[in-house]
Amino acid sequence: MPIKIPDDLPARRNLEAEGMVVMSEADAVRQDIRPLRIGLLNLMPQKQKTETQIARLIGATPLQIELTLVTTGTYVPGNVSRHHLSTFYRPWEEVRHQKFDGFIVTGAPVETLPFEAVKYWDELRSIYDWTQTNVTSTLNICWGAQAALKHFHGVEKHELPEKMFGVYPHRAVDPTAGLLHGFCDKVMIPVSRHTETRREEVEAADGISILLDSEEAGLCMAEDVARGQIFMLNHLEYDAGTLDEEYKRDVREGKAIALPKYYYPDDDPEREPPNVWRAHGHLLFANWINKTYQESPFNLSLIGR
Rank of each mutant, 00 (worst) to 15 (best):
A108I: 07
H170Q: 04
Q146M: 14
G73K: 03
N140T: 03
E216I: 09
Q64E: 13
K186G: 07
G39C: 06
G19A: 07
K255V: 10
A222Y: 00
T292D: 03
C220P: 00
S209H: 09
G178N: 02
L41N: 00
T176N: 08
D206H: 13
N299I: 14
T72I: 09
N275S: 14
E94F: 12
D206Q: 15
D213Y: 04
L302F: 06
E237A: 11
S214V: 07
A147G: 12
E203C: 12
L259Y: 06
F115P: 00
T72L: 12
N234C: 15
M164Q: 03
K119T: 08
P62K: 05
C220H: 06
Q46H: 14
L15M: 08
V76I: 15
V276A: 10
I303R: 01
L41W: 02
E94M: 14
D122T: 11
D224E: 07
W277E: 01
P265C: 06
H235V: 09
A258Q: 10
D174T: 12
T242W: 07
V76H: 12
V21D: 07
T61K: 13
E223F: 09
G228T: 01
I289G: 00
H170M: 04
M221G: 03
K261T: 08
E93M: 15
R34V: 15
I210N: 10
E94G: 00
V191W: 02
G59D: 01
R56H: 11
F115E: 03
M164S: 03
T138I: 05
V191Q: 07
N14Y: 08
R171P: 00
L179Y: 07
G154C: 06
Y263P: 00
T197P: 03
A26L: 09
D250C: 11
G304N: 07
P77T: 05
A108L: 11
T71G: 08
G102D: 04
F231V: 03
N42P: 05
T176M: 11
V21K: 13
L160V: 06
H282I: 08
T52N: 11
I289F: 01
V110S: 02
E295T: 10
V70W: 02
P269K: 06
A28S: 10
E272H: 10
Y120G: 02
N14F: 07
R305I: 10
T242H: 09
L160A: 03
E159L: 15
D101T: 03
L113K: 12
A258W: 03
A177K: 08
I303S: 04
G102V: 02
G254P: 09
N287C: 11
F231L: 09
P297F: 11
Y75W: 13
A204R: 14
P273H: 02
I104G: 01
R125S: 04
M221T: 00
P265I: 04
P274N: 11
K186D: 11
L41M: 12
R199Y: 04
E111V: 06
M188S: 14
T72H: 06
G304P: 01
A148S: 12
K261Q: 15
D250K: 09
L139D: 00
V22F: 02
R252L: 13
L302N: 08
P169T: 02
N14D: 14
S81M: 12
W121K: 06
K291Y: 08
M188Y: 14
A108P: 00
K163M: 10
G59F: 02
E270N: 14
A145C: 08
V187F: 05
W277V: 09
T50I: 10
P274G: 12
R305L: 13
S301Q: 14
I257R: 05
P169D: 04
D239W: 09
N42V: 02
L233V: 06
